[in-house]
Each structure stands twice: as structure tokens, then as C-alpha cells.
Amino acid sequence: MSSWDRAFHAYGPARGGDQLLNAFRHGREDMYLRDHPHAAWQPYTFLWTALYCDGRITPATVLGLRHLASAVTADDFGGSDPTLRVAAVWWIRDVIRSVLTATDLDGARLTAARRNEPAVHEWLDEYLRQERSIFDWDADDAPGQVLIAGARVDCFDFLPECFAPLSTLLTPSQAEESSPTPDEPLLTASWPEELRAAAASATALLVAHPGLRR
């Protein structure tokens, strides 16, 4: 599993991506932009443009999926902005769709099996010293395609871990007038209808995964 400083997204190295997602997760985009006035990315646009990029799955997409799936049910997700949790669930949903509709997963596994070869490590070391988009790749960047295949496989294998947090968001409170305490399961929270709709859409896709069909 890569770390942020060893991963890339659609537009180049993903270093600092954990800081961007933490700012998004806590609803602190304004604070992040104030503290990083020359940043190339804003937290929200980083999520939708760099980590997803019209369905392109990269090593950084895997890191983003793991990050958000583990955090999206936190009672303080998004800070004072409830729309950020909804956006995160829709992002997870779109990643699920891209992963499950991709073709030739078996071929991707065969390609991904080469990701620990020295030539792939050497290519990655060189690539991470640049600010170069995957859209600029050519035949010399074949090792990068090995890592893209690995990202597809890693996302696919992680999808069953998304089921529990998404299903948690599906059910409103049995007693809407009561608020959950930090120790209560979030299934008892009165989730907004918009959020439940996003979670339902994501879960409807997710159960097509072979590990969840039961």
C-alpha cells in the first residue's frame, strides 16, 4: 500500500494529499487556503478533479477511498458544513461505479503483479520528481500503467470495506428528537434524506461486488 508521498493522481505526485483530505473532512477549506495561499489544489477540487478525474483510478484514488470510507460516519465530519459529508458519499459512489464497470480485472491483476519490479520502482522515483500529468504519458511510461492497474485492483479489493459505513448512513433515527452521543452507533443518527439517498445509490452499486452479493 502506497503512502501519499509515494503515490500520484491524474495530474502528478500526490504528496500532501492527506492534508487536503483532512481539511475537507473537518470543513476547514478556508483555513487551508489561508495557510497555503499558493497551493495548487483546494480540498474540494482535489477530491473531484485529481483523485477521481472522470473515473480515472490512480494510486491516490485508493488512498482517498480508504481515508473517506473510514471517516465519513464521524459525528464531526465536515465541521459545520453538512454538504461535505454528502459530497464525500457521492465521491465514494462514483469511485465504486468506475471500479465495478471497468473491464478485464483479471488482466489488471496480472499487470499489477509486476509493480514490485525494479524497473517500476525506478520509474516511480523519477516520476515523483516531476509535476507531470498522466495525460502526458507516452510509451516510456509503461511502468506507470502497471501502477494504474495495481490501483484498480486495490480499489476493487477494498470495496467490501465500504459497505459498513455506507449502510450506516441509510437508516434515519427511530427517535428523531434524540441526538446520538459520541458512544452511540451512528446508525441511530437522524441522517438527512439527501445523505441517505447518496448512501443508497452507492450501496446499490456496491452489492454487485462478488464479496457482497450475499
Rank of each mutant, 00 (worst) to 15 (best):
A69M: 08
Y11S: 01
R28C: 10
F8K: 01
A200P: 05
A10E: 02
L100K: 03
V72R: 05
E193H: 10
D157C: 05
W123M: 06
M31D: 14
C53N: 04
L206V: 06
G150N: 11
P180C: 12
C155K: 08
L47R: 09
L166N: 06
V153M: 09
Y127E: 00
T171C: 13
V99S: 03
N22W: 15
N22V: 11
V120P: 14
T168F: 14
H121S: 03
E161S: 14
L169C: 05
S80D: 10
C155A: 03
F135C: 11
Q42A: 13
G79W: 13
L51V: 02
T101Y: 05
S133N: 02
A69F: 09
A71K: 12
L206R: 11
H36V: 09
A197P: 06
L166W: 10
T168H: 13
D5L: 05
L212E: 05
G27D: 10
S179F: 13
V146Q: 07
L47Y: 05
L33E: 09
F77Q: 07
A7W: 02
A199S: 03
A112F: 12
E177M: 03
E177N: 01
E193P: 14
L205P: 01
Q130H: 06
T61P: 01
A39T: 12
T103R: 10
D94F: 02
L84S: 00
A87L: 01
L212K: 09
E176G: 12
E161H: 15
L110A: 06
E184T: 07
S179D: 04
E176H: 13
T83Y: 00
D157P: 06
S2Y: 13
S80V: 14
F77C: 06
L105I: 09
T58E: 01
E117L: 06
W123I: 07
N22D: 08
C162V: 14
C162Q: 07
L65T: 02
A71H: 10
D136S: 12
W90E: 00
P82R: 10
T203P: 15
T45K: 08
H38N: 05
W191F: 14
R85V: 06
F24E: 06
R15N: 02
L206S: 03
F46P: 07
D35R: 09
I148P: 00
